[in-house]
Nucleic acid binder design. Structure first.
Lengths: 199, 199, 199, 199
DNA sequence: AATGAATGAGCCTTCATTCAT
DNA sequence: AATGAATGAAGGCTCATTCAT
């Protein structure tokens, strides 16, 4: 009954689909999922309202695609840092790099992150993507650490936890700004925890 | 011009207001803020649509009230645990209690937590409440630790960070269920980090 | 089925009913019929919402009562002026008095007048009251003019028309304020028309 | 953030916008502004509720547009009559034409006129339009009268007043139907006043 | 007689989605 | 493939009126 969603093969179409995703990305970031309507997405993408439903099943479908590129945007840089880590391992330096990059990523994406994270509660697919992102990061990082000589039991658990801590700290820094907190000192503490964890 | 909001003094009225808050609490938890409409809240509270606006300014006002009791629900038990901590201090035991209680609280409230947290991005008042909750917990906990003899510099930063870590772990445990993670082991690791932090 | 409307005999009740009418009078004047709600009327009258429906059938019924006292407020002073007019008749002076009093009344009641007048279009009872007001004024004035020696045919038509003209002028002066109009001069012109009419 | 109002250029769209205005025109006439809801307007215009907000900002915006065409409907015919007045001037005939046309216009539009006029009290834009209408008529008429040789001081004031008188009479005739008034005679009287005014 | 809490129909408006072109 | 006008269900909120006390 309903027109099937086009899987665009031609370059023009792919480009257009990406523009819509990009517009969604921006708007969801700026005003959240419920603060955005499809007409605005279309407008910002420079396409008509109707054609959005040629490329996406519904509004949620755009969100899913936004989520995908969000995950890439977050995953790639972190994976890259870890990949380049080399012997002789300098845990402290690595920790610092990861922290700084996570903060940077948070600065760019934190609103969207919150929006997506909240939707994960209600939407199974969104939740699944988040979990898989964490899986990927954890796995990649664990492998690399082992490869560069880190010897520690429970390495997966530690990596996973470490990422959570870093994320938590990044969020704190970017957002909450409790006046009584010295974020530079806190960073050191986080760094020490990480180093301690993998020694 | 606008009808003033009743400030219910009589027991019956307070009860009714609480019923509405409770209904909001449940529905926001189950289907999120945007998935809930005022008619449903009224229905579940066993009142008419109209009277909701006798007790609350608007839908968002219900959310603010839900947030308030949510914060109490989270703050009270944790504060209680810390208050009862006594000399000679057993950091390991205290850490465990806090972790377990946080998990328990998360199990009851995590969906709502996410919903509220996401709205903090858009709503300044919601954000402010969250920050103040963290402030309260951090302050209360820091004081108590000092009182029972914990000697450590940067105690505020450490407490704050510790709470984040615990929270992060609790969320992980309750929600994400990565199959490759051994959550019991992770718990031990978290516990060790905390103990190490304040030794 | 519905509780009959009380016709208050006791003084206290009459007083209360009048307070409600007065409150209605003020509010309808200030923000119009549709800009006023019954709760506000009750509040300003210092009574409960419920009791309003003990004295009045519905909101419209209040309007009807307001209309009645409005009519008295307008009718009495004008009637009074004409009654006091005496031989030897000074048409010019009488005209001036009527014009000035009409302006004064308009200043106090013009918004209400508009509101009521507009409702007359949809509400037969309101319309009837307006017509009867005009009847009363016309009749009273005609009689008096004849009594004091004005000899003119079509006296009823002329009086009626005269009142309309004065009203029209009063409205103009109080409200419209066209910058290019010299209202003092216009007043003279109106005055002359009236004098001419009954000479 | 808010969806932009379409400014329809295509004929089809203009037609549709006009249909909505026409429906508003009729309904506001029949049952007043507050007696009309947007769903009814849409229904009578043969469109969906939603599209109304594609063409208009809100319900009041429809009213403003209705007001505009109302003003044209009233202004054009009167302006036309005056334009065609020619030397040698026959004031009596001109007065009669204006009176008759005003009555005719009143018959078609009086209910709407009342509705609009009442709203002018609350709505500045509506009020401004009414004033500007009067300005236009007065100016146009004054010019023409001078052009065709009417020599009189205070011509603007007189024209303005004259229009008010005619309007007042027209309203009287169409609406009030006081049984004791002979409207034919009254018309003569009005006519004489006008002639006298500009002689 | 009086209170004011409670009711629920109704209103304006938005927006995801569809459809004629 | 593309447009953007059109749809209509749904939501937040108001308020005249009723009812329990």
């Amino acid at each position: 009954m309903s027109t099937a969603i086009r899987v665009p093969q031609q370059e023009r179409s792919i480009e257009k689909k990406n523009k819509i995703i990009q517009a969604g990305y921006e708007l969801f970031s700026e005003v959240g999922y419920y603060g955005t309507n499809t007409a605005e997405i279309a407008k910002r993408a420079g396409v008509s309202t109707g054609i959005v439903y040629g490329y996406f099943e519904d509004k949620r479908d755009i969100l899913i695609c936004v989520l995908e590129i969000y995950i890439d945007k977050v995953y790639e840089p972190l994976a890259h840092i870890v990949e380049r880590a080399d012997k002789p391992i300098n845990l402290h330096k690595l920790a610092l790099s990861v922290i700084d990059k996570t903060i940077e990523l948070h600065e760019q994406n934190a609103k969207l992150h919150n929006t997506l994270h909240s939707l994960a509660t209600t939407d199974e697919a969104v939740n699944a993507q988040f979990i898989s992102l964490e899986n990927k990061i954890t796995e990649q990082m664990s492998k690399q650490l082992v490869k560069i000589g880190v010897k520690s039991d429970c390495i997966t658990e530690k990596v996973h936890l470490a990422m959570n801590i870093v994320q938590s700290y990044a969020h704190e820094t970017v957002f909450d700004s409790h006046s009584y907190i010295d974020y530079a000192k806190m960073k050191e503490i986080v760094c020490n925890i990480l180093v301690e964890l993998f020694r």
